[in-house]
Structure formats: C-alpha cells, structure tokens
Design a protein around this nucleic acid. Structure first.
Lengths: 131, 131
DNA sequence: GTATATGCAAACAATTTGCACGCCT
DNA sequence: AGGCGTGCAAATTGTTTGCATATAC
C-alpha cells in the first residue's frame, strides 16, 4: 500500500518540459531522445534528471513506460491503447482498442503480425491476501 | 527475409541443458537463474554461453523472451498464452487464452489487475511494401 | 578437418546513484 | 528556511563481444 508517493513534488521546469515533450509526440521516444529535445530548452539539463523525472512521471501515472527489448520507451498518451512494433524500421505505432478485435488488426493497413505479447500487471492472489 | 538462420547449428551439451531447464520450469527465469541451474550440470559453463544460447533458441523459435522491466525472462512454453506479473512478489504467472476473455481474468482467483499491456510485433505497412 | 561453440575477461550500453549545490514553495 | 530537485561524474547492472581453444559433425 505504501508507495512512497507522499513526497511533496515540486513543479520544476525540467519536469514540465519533459512531460510537454512526451505529450507532443507519438513516436514513443527513448530517454535519450527526450534528453536531446529537452536540451533545446534547457541546454544544461542532465540525463540523470531526465531519468529521474521519467520515473516520477510514471509513478504518478502521467506517462507510460513501454518495454520493448533493451531500451525503455515512453508514452505521454495514457488512455487505453496498445502498441505495434515494426521489426524492420523499429518504429512503434499506436493500436486502438477497436482495431484489436476481429482479424483486421490495425485496420487492414498491410501490417504483418508476427506475434502478440500480453502482459498483465497487478497483484497476485497470494499477495493480495495480506500485504 | 535473410535471417542468418542458414548457419548449421551443433547440438551441444550446453544448449541441450539450457533448453531442458527452460522446459522443466514455469517460473519464467532470468538468464542468471538459468546459468545457476546449468552450473549444476556443467560447473564451468559461462554466462556468455548461456546468453548466446538463449539468443539462438529464441531465434529458432524454441523459447520465448519475456520483456518485463530491465531484465529479460525466458519461457520454454511456446504455445499461445499470456503473462501476469505480480508487482509485489515479482513472480510471473501464465495466463491462458480462455482466461483472458470476460471479466474474470485468471479465473476469479483474486488477482488484482492494475494494467494490461499489449505489444504486437511484426512488419509495418511501409516496410512490408518493399524490403 | 573445419567451422561452430565455448570459457574467460574485457567492453558496452542503459540506467541509477552519491554528493554538494540550487531553487521551488 | 527547509527539503526536494539538479548537474555532474562515477558506479552499477544486464548483456554482448573478441580471442584463443575445444568440440560436434
């Protein structure tokens, strides 16, 4: 239950800019890309600060972390939607809930599907008893 | 198209044991756990060999890589099924296809769901044209 | 015999962290 | 004024790789 979210967060320029960057793109960028963008606004922002803020924004539910392979990617869109990763160009596309039902996933647009991974996150039966 | 799978693979003890280990557990272990188990059979096996074989086994479709957070986990079960990760005990449970439909995911067993991530992998419309 | 696979250790890449200082509230 | 947040650099962690040797075929 205790999530360490009782800390009073400050509204720093750095955090605001990082959130703005994420909200204004749909490319699901890496921390490094976000860092490069942020430097245009705050030239001496550090990569550590970017990582720290991404963690805070994620924990407070303002952004989502996408886990594809080795690098983390981030998403400022938090309504229910899913993702398609192209193994060729490595881009990540948004998949709408509606597009997931039926056979024509991603609306017949010539996307070739290799596999579908579903990961549900939560608390298991053993841990939900007490804890 | 070219996938580099024209290499003639040898059937080494190391690779056989790693696959055996993965097929005989459902805990979705990390490379490190597999390494520790493998050492019981081949005491001087190296972690590099474990990683190399996991990659080969994955590429040949004999195992699956599960991407949860920073560490990779591996699964010797390759039929269609999904996963549930408990944020408390960190265990990963198998989720059957049937359990995914309807509201009673994972069969009413008191699992609390926080979020569902779906990642589809394949080739996008732009890359499927030529390439 | 020969090319793939191995063990070892070093290299790498992504992310995290300790510290002294800075700046929201 | 106080404490969260920052920049910087070093540390850590998970994974990959170069090389000489071993081994499956």
């Amino acid at each position: 239950m205790l999530k360490g979210n009782d800390i009073k967060r400050r509204n720093t320029q750095q955090r605001k800019i990082i959130l703005d960057i994420l909200r204004s793109t749909n490319i699901h960028p890496t921390a490094d890309w976000i860092y490069e963008q942020a430097r245009k606004e705050i030239p001496n922002i550090s990569l550590g600060t970017v990582y720290r803020n991404l963690k805070i924004l994620k924990e407070s539910g303002q952004i989502i972390e996408i886990n594809d392979g080795k690098q983390s990617r981030f998403d400022g869109r938090i309504d229910e939607h899913y993702h398609f990763k192209c193994i060729s160009c490595e881009r990540i596309f948004d998949v709408e809930k509606e597009d997931l039902s039926g056979l024509k996933i991603i609306g017949n647009k010539n996307f070739i599907i290799h596999r579908i991974d579903i990961l549900i996150t939560g608390v298991c039966n053993m841990c939900s008893g007490d804890n």
